[in-house]
Design a binder for these strands. Structure first.
Lengths: 233, 233
DNA sequence: TACATTAGTGTAAAATACACACTAACATAC
DNA sequence: GTATGTTAGTGTGTATTTTACACTAATGTA
């Protein structure tokens, strides 16, 4: 079967920058999921997970589908990033790519390699391999967006499990923003927003004092947001 | 001539939200350029200027071309906004639209109607007519982005002439953000950034004290920005 | 039970944001 | 040329926010 149009059309791809974070690591790093391409072009090279838009789905749906196919995860945070359209970004033909970025908490998820017959692996953003196409640029834009956004919207919680400690939260921010926060000031600020609910549970098992567990109060945040409240860290 | 592909492809359109602002008006309003459609679908209705991506141009180029075709202007501020992909956003067939927004100072520009045989007109954002396709949604997203962005990046200057008075700048911010600023605090803040250069000229002609003219110091801003400086109003 | 390690807490100083009112200069009308 | 209406331009004190900073509490392991 083939499809014919009176004007030439670019192919429309969707590529995902899937950020992963594991609070259980001693010095956690922000990671990105890459897959090793099994077909040309760039066969054997690492690339961002992606594929072509199907006509019966929206871009959001296509991105969610790609994410599900690569990670097995559903209902994770994902948002559109930017649409890339350099003329030579794909050597085969004209392809524009609508990039998305997703935030995945790695506790919920362990790689089941070989999902799509393609090898998948997490790489620290500091040690990314060479990437196919213009994916290096896409990652750069995604990082800028994540770093810019996390300070003004409470999306960092998406990288942690439902219940987390204040230290885990602080380390997350320090990791992503590559700066340190004063412990007391950080906790005071977070506490004053009143957006965390103490679950009563404790994080135990480490040879030091146990830490209280909290949940992010999404309902309250959404209510406050409507009234013009702004989160800022 | 026709073009055939093994998989179906959406058409790729580019639509522009062209924001216009005229500091000479007594109570300036943020405006948007709309064109009256001369062809189906939505013939006769107002819509955002736009067209289809051509294969030899990038999305940025296509957006700049559309802007030029509609306004006659070149080298105005324009940036990609978002890509819209609802399945039914175009009744003819599957079309995804990459939206851009542009900032135009209306002093430089007066409408030369009938450019593309299409009627063009500026509408205040408060009194927009019904718009074709999902253009109402596109405008909504563009407004949110503009309001969010103008507070953290000095893009407001793009809506003013090269030389402007501090009152004009303040009125611009008040108009877009729909809030008022204290005159002295506003001027102090702006002044302390050291990003304005006094040109020596004065804005005369009104029956009251003349006002000093300033230029935005783009070079200095770019230099500071690299060192992590953040503009915020 | 000693030790190493992280959790958890308050206060004072500095910086920033905010509220507020008058004089100066211009064009116009008389 | 003088009075009038209107916007330009300026400083200070107060409240709020941000920052810097150090010790005790609790846990698991050796």
């Amino acid at each position: 079967m083939s499809y014919t149009y009176p004007q030439p059309r670019p192919a429309v791809a969707v590529d995902c920058v899937i950020f992963g974070y594991d609070h259980r690591q001693h010095m956690p790093e922000l990671q990105i999921l890459c897959i090793q391409r099994s077909i040309e072009p760039f066969r054997g090279q690492w690339a961002l997970p992606g594929g072509f838009l199907r006509l019966h789905e929206t871009l959001d749906q296509a991105a969610a589908r790609e994410l599900h196919e690569e990670t097995g995860l559903e209902s994770v945070y994902i948002e559109q990033l930017y649409t890339f359209s350099a003329l030579d970004r794909d050597p085969r033909e004209r392809v524009i790519s609508v990039a998305y970025f997703a935030l995945v908490n790695l506790e919920r998820y362990t790689l089941h390699a070989g999902t799509d017959a393609a090898q998948a692996a997490w790489f620290s953003v500091a040690k990314l391999p060479a990437l196919a196409f213009d994916h290096k640029m896409i990652v750069k834009v995604a990082l800028e967006r994540l770093r810019g956004k996390i300070r003004y919207q409470p999306i960092g919680f998406e990288l942690l499990p439902d219940e987390f400690t204040l230290s885990e939260l602080q380390t997350l921010y320090e990791t992503i923003l590559e700066r340190s926060f004063d412990k007391r000031n950080f906790r005071k600020k977070i506490h004053d927003y009143g957006l965390l609910i103490e679950t009563g549970g404790m994080r135990r098992g480490k040879p030091h004092r146990a830490a209280r567990l909290y949940r992010f109060d999404t309902k309250r945040y959404k209510a406050l947001e409507k009234r013009g409240f702004m989160f800022e860290l």
